[in-house]
Design a protein around this nucleic acid. Sequence first.
RNA 1: GCCCCGGUGGCGGAAUCGGUAGACGCAGCGGAUUCAAAAUCCGCCGCCGAAAGGUGUGCCAGUUCGAGUCUGGCCCGGGGCACCA
Length: 892
Amino acid sequence: MAVGSIISRLFQGRRAQPMQEKYAPAEIERSAQLHWDTTGAARAVEDAGKPKYYCLSMFPYPSGKLHMGHVRNYTIGDVLSRFHAMQGYNVLQPMGWDAFGMPAENAALANNVPPAAWTYSNIDYMRAQLKSLGFAIDWEREFATCTPAYYRWEQWLFTRLYEKGLVYKKLGSVNWDPVDNTVLANEQVIDGRGWRSGALIEKREIPMYYMKITAYAEELLSELDNLPGWPEQVRLMQKNWIGKSTGVRFAFPLADGGDDKLWVFTTRADTVMGVTFVAVAAEHPLATRAALNNRELADFIETCKQGGVAEADIATMEKKGMATGIYVTHPLTGEAIEVWVGNYVLMSYGDGAVMGVPAHDERDFAFALKYRLPIRQVIAVAGEPAFSDETWADWYADKQRGRLIHSGKYDGLGCEAAVDAIAADLTARHLGEKKTQFRLRDWGISRQRYWGCPIPIIHCPTCGDVPVPDEQLPVVLPESVEITGAGSPLAKMPEFYECQCPRCGGDARRETDTMDTFFESSWYFLRYACPDNTAAMVDERVAYWCSGGIDQYIGGIEHAILHLLYSRFFTKLMRDVGLIGDLGEPFANLLTQGMVVAPTFYRDLEGEENRGKKQWINPADVDVVTDERGRPTGATLKADGLPVIIGGSEKMSKSKNNGVDPQALIDRYGADTARLFIMFAAPPDQSLEWSDAGVEGAYRFLRRLWKTTYDHVQAGLVATQAVPDSLSSAQADLRRKLHQTIGKVSDDYGRRKQFNTAIAAVMELLNAYDKSPLDDAAGRALAQETLESIALLLFPIVPHCAQALYAALKPGLDAGRQPFPKVDPAALKQDEIELMVQVNGKLRGAIRVAAEAERASIEAAALACDGAVKFMEGKPLKKLVVVPGRLVNIVV
RNA sequence: GCCCCGGUGGCGGAAUCGGUAGACGCAGCGGAUUCAAAAUCCGCCGCCGAAAGGUGUGCCAGUUCGAGUCUGGCCCGGGGCACCA
């Protein structure tokens, strides 16, 4: 006898007890989870005989405990996994830990716990929480990215890419805290100051390793068109991020002779004749050269380095500049053009220099007004008011209607023709050419932090940078370490960095920077296919689970650009290194879930030193006061009964003290209620408003469903199928509703991935069931059919409860192993349908007609109905619109 | 600042292809049951109006027989901006 069969008999024996009258979630959930564990229900085994369904949720950072966003994310994944398993797919739903990252170092600073110990204990706690939610996860594939068994393979890949030139070293800007002598993350820079020291932050250039993602820019862009399963908005965001633009890269020769040239890129070469200045970044070689004997300019360049490196800060700061005294020659007119240093020009974009055309670029216009630089109009649009060099008008940048003026031989040309003509002339003078440029920059992966994957490079005074040879991998991160918040801990550990050069054997120094933690999350989804392989990064099982892409990926919208782009990049890199075949895109279907938000409450703190500061109060400690219609009129603190201020809904966070701990919810109501409410409260891609009252409603529904099923079971199970012909008209209505609901729920789970409407449909069905006469034999059979179907329809969302309900209705059977209910087309037949009647687009009545009624008879019935007669007021008929199955619109 | 998304009753939301706006749930109100309460069950529930009816999907225009849905402009809220993950 097969093991599965023995277990199922044991299960049957254990389940033979009578159904409990009351819904008891704790007991039901314990028993169902034990059953799934012992039967290996969630184990995923490669099986060429079944279509595979790889359902992946973004793995969590082990921050301590689960938050509502996790519950939401993993419930969506579990619903899709369980639904597809019932549809006959071979499902893989894995889970792991994105375990490297800054919070572990912050915790070490705050609580004096080593990052490794903190991380592993968080993982243990969160794993237990995930298990208590009953997710059908194959736990045998679990891994944490902070273990050498995982990160050794990214070190290995790094050395391969280094040898291929896909990893290289160059200078990059970081936030430097001059007091703590350390590099800060963007989030650690608050209003231009270090979060701990309060020191003014400055930009500093340090050597870093870069991944050549720009070499894949074209492919990453064009492949977006092959992702019909992605939300349009995410594809658009990625497209804009990659930012392909065609333009002209050209040079201004330096006026003081020599062969030196200043290169710029522009998408508006039609305006080159309007250039009145050129601006370079503070780090540009020309700026450095000019500052050598210009004290004032040197000081200005220093001030440009104040503040952080985040693009949002740079884009919103005041635009400032200073002349360098250096002149370049206009490549077409020969005119002398002054070079300025601008704090808004970034060295990391293109050539670190931009041409200034104040008449036709809004930013240049403001800059020229501020520094009284010449403004030369070279584009005019017929019909627009005269050009003014006092105030900006959007038509100055109009590409479609503009014609060139004051541009010599180019006068009269449109934008496109002018770009072509000017590019051709620049090319003829060997001073430029048409070029495609990307906004996307190479990915800097060096981090001056401890809790990350060590970069496997050895710096040798004679051999230079040498990748760590395979036999010396992994470079293990020491787990016993002191975190001080000042400087990189690894750089203070000679036992880590002192080493021998693998090439010459001489004394050398190991790289002490670690990798960006996006590195781990860029390939973890491939490793789930073969987590036990100790001899290779990936193996042939990737081809089984990942061919055609991962079938469903689910995660927060906040990852729409970086994580998803890096993962797409890695899949192509690993293909080109020969590790995997051509999988195409890694994620065939993407669902981006919205955030979980909750109301906020606060009191203003008293005292001069606390001016403007707020004391945030947890929603659990507040009573909301409402008027007789339920409108909130105020709120009071439970502890003292005095008022607090209502602050509106915001993303659950520690800083606003508005987090709701899912554990309290699970402890009180059970996992199924938590899952049901979180899926019912909002569509998955929209933000979700937390509400305790709504949870109560979800719990009430499960209790009611339980009681309804219990009553039916008490009255005796029915083995026979409902016979359509023997049903009364009211019973036929219920059966139609049942099969409409089956169709609706299947479509919601499968195509629409919208679960709130699926739950609402089942609630409607249960309401209809309660109102239907089901006491005769035909009704009893229909009741059995309906309740069995409801248990299976809800199984993906509330699997513990549905498992128990189904077992009570079909003793010995396992809900999760049943096929998903199918629509019986015979049940959907309807003889008569209702059509709405409008007069001039306004609803005025309704008519009932035969389902197959001819247009002529529908028209006659509509014109004859009371509402139509009344509102037509005898006016002549102008037009008659009949929308089949919907409505009739009478236009008079 | 730039890119993307959203805005519908007291609240969360539904309306899937331009065709009955407010399904389903929460809150509220009225009733039944109960010694009482909890739980449960029944009914009402956008706004104005006695009713007839009018009006209503952030605001202003437009397209259409018909607009929550499409177009243009604006206001407000949220996500991302390359070292939070």
